[in-house]
Design a protein around this nucleic acid. Structure first.
Lengths: 236, 236
DNA sequence: TCAGCTGTTTGAGCTCCAGCAAACAACGAT
DNA sequence: ATCGTTGTTTGCTGGAGCTCAAACAGCTGA
């Protein structure tokens, strides 16, 4: 992809660079390093000092945290135009989680110094960064609340709903989650076991709400799904 | 309290103002408005536009979030030298939660404009703000992981451990949580019911790990507590 | 084509803990 | 002192969902 195309494809759509003049965007993109990561490879490890952050041009990353006892949790998936490592680099903290490519992924990378430079020239970037971090905090708070008060089925529905927004691809018979997503992955996002996820999806498949296969989920009836997400299905 | 005493009591201890020269601290404190909030009163409501943020001089605030369905969750308690509303104001977002005084509380308040001013003069403040936000994100991630993988007893132990650090007061027979904390409150922090909290504390009281009364918890054996927090007590 | 691996399904049992209920205790106000 | 309010204790019951187990299916590479 030529630089110009790249700029076009990103213009006005990257939250971190929102509100910047075009020449700023040009300059900033020029300073980033292009970079590729094959499916399955790790971009950074939890606990490493955060010396650079990454804008996803294409592909998808899984951000996951592991506790000392070995239990894993998926923090989120990141897609095109989203940032990996932004919270850590801005805060001067180690990476709080491990980022793995779940598809072949193209990135644009800046180191900490470059960020400081451009943030000084265009303070809007610092504001944007804080807004992004605030949004993430908000999301995590919501997730804690859900874990505390909602049933598993409801949480699976919510999680799928979010994935539809973040990574849904319209197809002939529904909206498909556009990257390989196993039952185990879904379980680690929701806070349950792959067994329960499997059973739940099977039940929904009966009702025609989803269709699913090996590492594939397709939503056929988003309305029903959001009813379940909102209230936890009190039917038969 | 005179201004000078105030400055002394805060110097070098407020995370947001870390690394600032003394004259900066002076100037900043001068621009803040003193402010008092009696026990039980609300500082700000969830959803309100965040136009000011607050440094706690003395007292304690409860930060809680309520979902549309009415279920409550306590995000955290804030004590002296901590900031309320910082994430929201910095990010230009509405307050994500409601802050209530659980004791008579003295505050120092700045509006958004004042923050922008001082952050422009001393950019270190912006960096500190981001580090604080990053830390909060980290904490919330840990909490999500705990909710997903740990038993209630373990989570209660962890929560008490954190409260000891944040608000523990050494006394003759142990460390007491230094503000009124009901079973219900603890339950909303942990993600369980007051019944389970009550039962768990009763069991621990048998073993001499805690002593508790009406809105009071005292830790007598912090070591045992952290063993439970770390591994979830597999004994008889 | 077959073997091996990884991911999925499904069953059975059991446990943790939420939900309901009712009594009890501490505190504050009159 | 007494009453009402608010917080706590404790028993009982049921069910959601975790755990263990085993079979099954889809993909990959030799």
């Amino acid at each position: 992809m030529r630089n110009e195309q790249l700029r076009e494809s990103l213009k006005g759509k990257v939250p971190l660079f929102e509100g910047l003049p075009e020449e700023a965007l040009d300059e900033i993109l020029k300073r980033g390093h292009r970079h590729q990561l094959a499916k399955g490879f790790i971009l950074f490890h939890q606990g490493e000092p955060a010396d650079s952050f990454h804008l996803i041009i294409a592909g998808r990353l899984k951000v996951a945290q592991t506790s000392e006892e070995g239990q894993q949790m998926i923090v989120r998936y990141l897609g095109p135009r989203e940032l990996a490592g932004c919270v850590a680099v801005c805060g001067g903290l180690p990476y709080p989680a491990t980022a793995t490519a779940v598809e072949d992924t193209w990135l644009l990378q800046w180191n900490r110094g470059a960020l400081a430079d451009v943030a000084e020239r265009w303070p809007q970037i610092a504001l944007n960064a804080m807004r992004i971090m605030g949004g993430r905090t908000q999301e995590l708070q919501d997730r804690v609340r859900e874990l505390q008060g909602e049933r598993v089925e409801q949480r699976i529905a919510r999680t799928l709903g979010r994935l539809v927004v973040q990574a849904g691809r319209r197809t002939a018979d529904g909206i498909e989650i556009d990257f390989p997503l196993s039952r185990q992955d879904l379980a680690e996002m929701v806070g349950t076991t792959l067994h329960t996820v499997s059973r739940t999806l099977a039940a929904w498949e009966q009702e025609g709400i989803v269709r699913s296969g090996r590492q594939k989920v397709m939503i056929r009836d988003a309305a029903s799904l959001s009813v379940i997400a909102g209230s936890g299905e009190q039917s038969s």
